[in-house]
Write a protein that binds this DNA or RNA. Structure first.
Lengths: 188, 188
DNA sequence: TAGGACATGTCACGTGATGACATGGTCTGC
DNA sequence: GCAGACCATGTCATCACGTGACATGTCCTA
């Protein structure tokens, strides 16, 4: 038998989610999370840079998927088509667990620190898309703009999806949002 | 003679900027800022909710201007035209002090906490625009989307403006960015 | 089997942030 | 012109977050 229980990071995430749901983010200390996971606070900070980060561990995967999708888009695709491919990839990752996503979203919405962290994660997604576009030869104000607009579409679509029934298709809502943006910018 | 020197808040902001420039944000403690302003750390936290906020005191003004601009846009104006009016108002507020803006931007860029705070301030601008649009009768996914896209345009334009010469007109760059977004979304 | 790599524990400490209470000028009503 | 409310600040105590330094015990490998 090994010296420690396996999957410390997973236990910490689990314990954190439970406690945040039970009593809220601010009312939960890192020491309590660690204790529930059978660890110490110091160890918590070895797995997560800070208390917020325990809720955002999965965002690295999402970033990779977006980057891949932009890279894999055909060379002939327009800038915005490549962005749409990235959004489809995001929808595939996010669109699976409606209830979990809702719960997580409600924890984040209730706390300013967490909303800030959420925004910077979204910004890093945008940066990854912009990066991919630049590698495709798209020049810079245009690459950033396309990426930012894409993330704006994703955000709005995601929130709309969350507020609706569980069986809706996120990718479809993303596509509708994009079309709406197209219409909006064209009507001036 | 009064008991205290006037304009405590202004002195704190001034002291903070100086120290952040001299030695960086993280290397500056709240106690040091307060001391330079002739006050105590406890008083700092009475004027600013936290250490970051001392750099964002002016954003409330910006928010008001945006809200006004949306409200004052003619009833006949399209959704995106109202958003553009708000962006013009933002450009008028931000476009005046190129060098100051650059210095502030470099402090913020160098620190993750500050970038997070910047993003949530931008998100609150977006929320204010969306609010104004809803009051004009624009329904909700559309209002959010138009506001988010508008702020994306503002962000990209602002950064582009900062990276260029001081005498460029921010409002013009904003307009160009918007046109570029229009082109991007149309080309799919 | 010795020794290094590694995940965790333990301890100490600085900083950010907040509540409770004290202080002493300024303003207002009478 | 004074009592008392008001208000900005100071002082003190305290807590949670976050980090550096060092210790410990298990597993892996030469």
């Amino acid at each position: 038998m090994s010296r420690w229980e396996p999957d410390a990071s997973g236990r910490l995430r689990q314990a954190a989610m439970e406690l945040f749901v039970e009593r809220g983010y601010e009312q939960t200390t890192v020491a309590e999370i660690a204790q529930r996971a059978g660890l110490t606070a110091r160890t918590f900070f070895r797995h997560f840079a800070d208390k917020r980060e325990v809720l955002f561990a999965s965002s690295a995967v999402l970033l990779d998927r977006l980057a891949e999708a932009v890279e894999d888009a055909p060379a002939s695709a327009s800038t915005m088509t490549a962005v749409l491919a990235a959004l489809d990839a995001a929808a595939a990752v996010l669109g699976g667990q409606h209830e979990t996503a809702r719960q997580r979203y409600s924890i984040i919405s209730a706390n300013a620190e967490l909303r800030e962290r959420e925004l910077i994660k979204l910004a890093s997604l945008s940066a990854a898309i912009a990066d991919g576009l630049r590698r495709r030869g798209v020049a810079d104000p245009e690459a950033s703009l396309a990426a930012e607009a894409g993330i704006a579409v994703l955000r709005v679509a995601f929130e709309h999806w969350l507020s609706g029934p569980a069986d809706q298709d996120l990718a479809r809502i993303v596509r509708q949002s994009f079309d709406q943006l197209k219409t909006l910018t064209a009507t001036i």
